[in-house]
Amino acid sequence: MNLPDWWKIDPCEPFVLGPREFPGRIWTASGCFAYGLTGHEISSRGFTSPYEGLGAVVSKTVTPMARTGNPMPRLCELPTGALNSIGLENVGFDEFLASVLPELERRGVPTVVSLAATRPDEFGVMVAALQMAGADYEHWHGVEINLSCPNVAEGGHDFGRDPETVARCVAAARKALPDRALLAKLTPNVADIASLAKAAAESGADAVSVINTVVGLEVDLTSGRPVLPRRYGGYSGPGVLPIALAKVDEIVQKAGVPVVGVGGIGGAQDALKFFALGAEAVQVGTAQMEDPFAAARIAADLSG
């Protein structure tokens, strides 16, 4: 593809984020590529694996205990994306540590572990256990703390809306994570995202991942009721791209905090927009579900 003149970076070259060197700048977003163990055997013309050229896979969010997730339907397709209400279904932290993380290391998947908790100190406990188990791991690059999953009943929602709580969660994780990157994933469902980013950075986050999904609702006109059993879902896909770009810009301009851009990226041009605003890296989410090679194609396209 034709790349703009200002674009001088090779996103498949290593770059430094916090205390860590990542193999590249095109990542997959949490929740959209399982734990990074799915799809290794899928091929496509020009690619031997969907993991080719990826800088990191951000794992599906892991919680202290296993979760069965929300009732069906969990997805609602929209003309410009989708609402999801998966409900953080996951194998639980102990199982992740025992069987998933070692397998990611064995396969050489560059990994960022996404964690969610209900109390700030739980982040500290989980990160400390990760640090113990993965101290020698070469491919585990960092932790992304999920402060804003909007579809969990316990109010994961409000958790990430308060700068003080964000600061406490980040500080607890940072204390236990000396030599890996620490990212805080922020919700866009706030009036002042820059103050959240600032709170995260001042408490030790190396970057913020922006944005998580936008709270949304769809109504089934036949029944007159919301489509999703929990009414609200997380809106993602092409429709949130301008929202994500605006939030990233707000943070770069007002807080000067390093940003990993995420939200609505479908192709290389979308990714370039985040880089134009100053993002250090980008994450591909919803597009990865329709095409397991979405992120790999973007990495290849932007390498020139």
């Binding site: 959209c32 799809g39 069965t68 997730g69 969990r74 989708a82 279904e89 579900m289």
Partner: peptide, 30 residues
């Protein structure tokens, strides 16, 4: 048959409740 997002196990959007080995019915898994 279920509505699907990704089709390849990435999104957990299409789950079917099944029995969990050795567990009572209420303790099924997705």
């Amino acid at each position: 048959e279920e509505h699907m997002g990704c089709g390849y196990g990435a999104c957990k959007g299409c789950v079917i409740p099944i029995r969990s080995d050795g567990q009572p019915e209420a303790e099924g898994r997705n």
